[in-house]
Design a protein around this nucleic acid. Structure first.
Lengths: 227, 227
DNA sequence: CTTAATAGTTGCATTGTGCCACTAACTTTA
DNA sequence: TAAAGTTAGTGGCACAATGCAACTATTAAG
């Protein structure tokens, strides 16, 4: 359309429609779940999909700030653990043939830090087990695929013993930590090798004198070791 | 600015300036190198940086297509191995305070597949050892950081025995394969354990009767096993 | 006091890995 | 023609990492 002739190429091109999407994972009822929102608008109105929103260059400092703003505005939650997952973009993402570009983030939340049923939300929100969601053909856009990617990334972290502190409170027992890892991976782990690795790599430290009581033998409480 | 009142929210927001950047790695003179382009325009005119270009929603089907078009137009090369690295975006990426969003890709090329000095290129191109580039404060934008990320991703792949076929021709000897891995990692590998893993995991297969001759004892030629 | 349940430790067999030496096959040099 | 040099390819062994299972410890419940 409009070109500058003097300056080399200051051509003006139409830009893609830019959004952020968030795959928020949590352990709910002993299962790895993802937070889904019911879409009220086209496309895919009435379907479930990942929560997300438009990038506002007038409001957001950077991509992470955009994600936190969207989480605050739409979910009324802050995301302490947030990692970029991928970017998806192209002409065919939106059935109306709009060129869309979404930067997808992955967030982890302790189950107790967020209740989708609470509050006067604008939209319907729900936790859904990832095993179901990953193969659900009814999800909006390619969101089933994105959830699968988020789960894979989280599982790889646990396999490498990058512990999922994003799912845990500040204080936890080794049993709780191991159970969380097992629920993420979907398989049992060996107690002795798990603890051996925690010990060798100094990933957690005991909180002197603090014990979790109530169910049978009390358990030592631990906290993460920052590195 | 302009709102639609009838339809829920079809507000028009200004979109970020969207680009793709490419970190193309190769083994040149036994060293892991990255392809840099000299910038002719502001910002950072005269500095070296990663090649890249604007996303053209009128030309590109999706993000990968945009990358291949930029590679074709600016470098006259096609990238057989291409992986998304990350997306970087925010108001402060560009010193002129424009909100910029770049999707960064990582490409691998065999050294012999591309010669930056050949041809009548518009811009200056050069291979630079990644060890130098990663700590070079003079690079445009945050490109030194992006190169470091690309190198880390490539090294992790090799550590996990995801072999760097993107650097190799179709036929190669085990010696060449191991040397390539060593140049990527920057350290020596043990021959017997390397070959043991290749064997156990069935990552390569010998090409019957095909040998590389010329330098002392001939070596069996191998090809990758697709999975 | 016994049983059940979870917390935490220890020993051992199996596997994976790094290190090193060895044989094989070719070229180069004398 | 023979010896030396260089790369290709294999095999043995010590050691570390891992998985498995048994064991003790400490509490609650009956």
């Amino acid at each position: 359309m409009s070109n500058a002739v003097q300056q080399p190429p200051a051509k003006v091109h139409l830009m893609p429609f830019c959004r952020v999407e968030i795959a928020i994972l949590s352990i709910v009822d002993d299962h790895l779940c993802v937070l889904l929102a019911k879409r009220s608008q086209a496309p895919y109105a009435g379907r479930w999909g990942l929560p997300g929103g438009v990038i506002r260059i007038d409001l957001d400092e950077d991509l992470e700030a955009a994600v936190q703003r969207v989480a605050r505005e739409r979910l009324e939650v802050e995301l302490p653990f947030l990692r970029q997952l991928c970017a998806v973009g192209g002409v065919s993402r939106d059935p109306r043939s709009k060129w869309g570009l979404s930067i997808v983030y992955r967030g982890l939340l302790p189950a107790e830090a967020f209740d989708p049923k609470a509050g006067k939300r604008i939209e319907a929100l729900t936790w859904r087990p990832v095993e179901d969601v990953m193969v659900d053909a009814k999800l909006a856009f390619d969101h089933a695929q994105l959830v699968a990617q988020a789960v894979t990334a989280t599982r790889s972290e646990v396999e490498r013993m990058e512990l999922p502190f994003g799912f845990l409170p500040e204080q936890f027992t080794l049993g709780e930590l191991q159970a969380t890892c097992e629920q993420i991976l979907g398989r049992r782990l060996d107690k002795s090798s798990f603890r051996r690795k925690l010990d060798e790599r100094k990933l957690v430290m005991p909180i002197e004198g603090e014990m979790r009581t109530g169910a049978f033998r009390p358990a030592q409480l631990f906290m993460r070791v920052l590195r």
